[in-house]
């Protein structure tokens, strides 16, 4: 499973990537939606974990562009800004899951697996 982590929180995203590596999951990371879109055009990812609020391009905008480029790529939102409206909007646009920070890594992996199998 190849995963792309997109979050402007450097410490969080790098640590999460390291922990996924420890679990034999191939995880890349970028710090903005724009970088994620650029990378997606070059690389194939099974799952993209997106933050909702990021400088420049928001999580929803990034998801829309990713879906245009890689329609089969699964999207999971992992955000500290949890709201019912955001959750509904993400589901409406085709996100597989909407998780709130802080998240248990096992739950995250489970959701990623569900996304791939579901």
């Amino acid at each position: 499973m190849k995963v792309l982590l997109v979050d402007d929180e450097y410490e969080m995203v790098t640590t999460l990537a390291e922990r996924l590596h420890l679990r034999a999951i191939d995880a890349d990371f970028v710090f903005s939606g724009k970088d994620a879109v650029t990378l997606i055009m070059e690389e194939m990812y099974d799952v993209v974990v997106l933050d909702m609020k990021m400088p420049g391009m928001s999580g929803l905008e990034t998801m829309e562009q990713i879906q245009e480029i890689r329609p089969k790529t699964k999207i999971i939102f992992l955000t500290g800004h949890g709201s019912v409206a955001d959750c509904e909007a993400s589901k409406k646009h085709g996100a597989c899951s909407y998780l709130l920070k802080p998240v248990d890594i096992e739950v995250l992996i489970e959701k990623m697996c569900e996304a791939l199998t579901g």
Partner: peptide, 17 residues
């Protein structure tokens, strides 16, 4: 919630690591 959840997530990941 956003402002606290982000650093909490970092702590969570660091402790997890």
């Amino acid at each position: 919630a956003h402002e606290i959840n982000n650093p909490l997530a970092i702590i969570n990941e660091k402790l997890g690591l």
